[in-house]
Nucleic acid binder design. Sequence first.
DNA 1: GAATTTATTTAGGTAACCCTAAATTGGATT
DNA 2: AATCCAATTTAGGGTTACCTAAATAAATTC
Lengths: 226, 226
Amino acid sequence: MGETFVLSESMEDYLETILNLIKQNGSARVTDIARTMEVAASSVNESINRLSARGLVEQEKYGPIKLTAAGREWAERIDCTHQIIYLFLEKILGIDPETADRDACAIEHDLSQKSFKAMVDFLLANGHLTEQSCALAILAKKEEADGMAAKEVMLNDLAVGSTVEVVKLTSKGALKRKLMDMGLNRGAKIEVKGKAPMGDPIEVKVRGYSLSLRKKEAEEIMVREV
Amino acid sequence: MGETFVLSESMEDYLETILNLIKQNGSARVTDIARTMEVAASSVNESINRLSARGLVEQEKYGPIKLTAAGREWAERIDCTHQIIYLFLEKILGIDPETADRDACAIEHDLSQKSFKAMVDFLLANGHLTEQSCALAILAKKEEADGMAAKEVMLNDLAVGSTVEVVKLTSKGALKRKLMDMGLNRGAKIEVKGKAPMGDPIEVKVRGYSLSLRKKEAEEIMVREV
DNA sequence: GAATTTATTTAGGTAACCCTAAATTGGATT
DNA sequence: AATCCAATTTAGGGTTACCTAAATAAATTC
């Protein structure tokens, strides 16, 4: 296996961002990463090259960034640590969500395995984590459940009045960019307000805004009942 | 005056080491610092020059390093944070002393004031800190009092017309640098000139210059009324 | 007090991260 | 097919923070 022993905070942040983008949008492009992390695209490019040299990430020229198995594992570990710290701060110390998230972000790279486990135990003992297994397993289970719970359908297949949640955007390129810009990211709640006779266009409400989607666009949006 | 702004982790570590050496040996020399931090003497020299340029440290050529008032205050704040985290990890989470110290070292630079205070309260409530015996608690209280005097809020929460003072930048990396470059250092006076409908962007005046801040940026700036 | 050892500084590198500006490239539009 | 635009890469810089090696100053020892 890639005997990559240590990564800088920055590299870990990149991995984490990439993982989250893939989970949210199905892919992670240079520009997405740059926007999320608020750095220049050229900086992302450089960092991706470093991660790639370490075998944590793969990218064909001009293509999207993919995590290798090792990279994904690493990213998931960081993400899990993040979540546990977040929960600990919020549930045990009563810190507000925003601050808890910021602190989790800052600390996740440095916390020892021992302290991490102690936090998991503490959360378990106080009923804030309901499984007995380790936090990683809980998270894995949770994601599995998420995927199983409700069947995914295309937005244009819904009846008027449905309220759903975005699971994934299947489109690529400009269209996806456009949809993302409209706020149609993973987790966004959508209410179907109206449909024209042939199902084109579809009127929806997202985050308080009314949008009119072409059928072509709606087909690219995978959703599930909430 | 407190024309000291934000310091890198490394700089904070130097300050902390210097304070501890002075407490232990009565003085801090380049070599002592180099040994304690396990870096080359020339690296220490360089870092001392940077700290000196910031007015946190003083040194006559070939002489020992001394903390200025501002430097000592900063070092003591970090040290206090370190101790509280250490105690929290040891007493509450049951982490062994060595690991607790390592974690405290790593985390002390990043933990928010809120989480810090919550840890103090937690320790107090469980009898691991007594206000009279422990100087740490006093310091903690002092900071609490500071925080009470004028509540810290995010810049984007202010009404048009407010005049405030920067307390802290919560962002990291590029964004923080950008904000610093705009002159938004600790102590800088800011007047809120205008806000767009959704609070984005926000027009402010800093040191005579007009700036337009994105909401995202304004959220990273903690301020208090003056 | 001269020689030797130790401390400090200077000089010259390197690597990680970040930037802006200027090429490329690829997908969309026409 | 030619054009345009957005995304990506390359080129060229800058800062922080570390290093080794060599020069210089201070302290110690003989």
